[in-house]
Amino acid sequence: MPFPSPRSQDLQQRFEELKAAARETLEEVIASANEVGWGTREVLGALVAAAHSIEDANSADPDPVDDPSIGDAVREQIGHGEQFD
């Protein structure tokens, strides 16, 4: 589900808009998971854990788009004694 564009420039209002959109999306994800047999509490636990994992990754590398591509990293290692599967 695509998120709506922000309608406000006010930071608090933007947060409230985003929170409402995120809640709607999460409710859809939970309903979809419930339909196939997952419990709401276990889905919520998994979503929270996934959010923390993403938060940790973002803290470690807040702008991964600036990182070299995997292909570049592999090319840089060629000839330096590394072994690849």
Rank of each mutant, 00 (worst) to 15 (best):
P6I: 11
E76S: 13
Q77E: 05
Q12P: 00
Q77T: 07
E17Y: 06
P2Y: 06
R14P: 01
E35K: 15
I30C: 04
R14Y: 00
R75W: 05
Q9P: 01
M1T: 09
A60S: 00
S69N: 05
A51I: 08
D72R: 15
R41H: 07
Q83P: 00
P68N: 05
A51E: 08
E24R: 11
P68S: 03
A31F: 09
G81M: 08
G37I: 01
A33W: 04
A51Q: 13
R7Q: 09
D72I: 11
A73G: 02
R41D: 07
R7T: 10
P2M: 08
F84V: 01
E24M: 10
I70E: 07
P64R: 02
E76Y: 01
A60T: 06
K19P: 00
Q13A: 15
P4V: 00
V43W: 04
A57P: 01
F15D: 01
A57M: 13
S69H: 07
G81P: 06
S59Y: 11
F15T: 02
Q9V: 12
E55W: 10
S53C: 01
N58M: 14
V65E: 13
Q77S: 12
I54V: 15
T40H: 05
G39Q: 14
G81I: 00
G79W: 08
L26E: 08
N34K: 15
L44A: 03
D61P: 02
G45Y: 05
A49P: 00
E28M: 13
V74R: 04
Q77L: 15
Q13R: 15
D63K: 13
Q13D: 04
A57T: 05
V36E: 06
A21I: 01
R75H: 10
L11D: 04
V29Q: 02
P6Q: 01
V74K: 05
N58E: 12
E82D: 10
S8N: 09
V36Q: 10
E28P: 02
F15W: 01
R7S: 07
E28W: 04
G45R: 14
L47T: 00
I30A: 06
G71H: 10
K19C: 02
A73C: 07
R75M: 10
D72H: 12
S5W: 04
S32W: 03
D72E: 14
F84Y: 13
A33R: 15
E16K: 13
L47V: 12
I30L: 11
Q13G: 04
G81F: 10
A60I: 08
Q12T: 14
V36C: 03
V48G: 00
S69Q: 08
D85R: 12
V29H: 03
E16W: 06
V65M: 09
S5T: 15
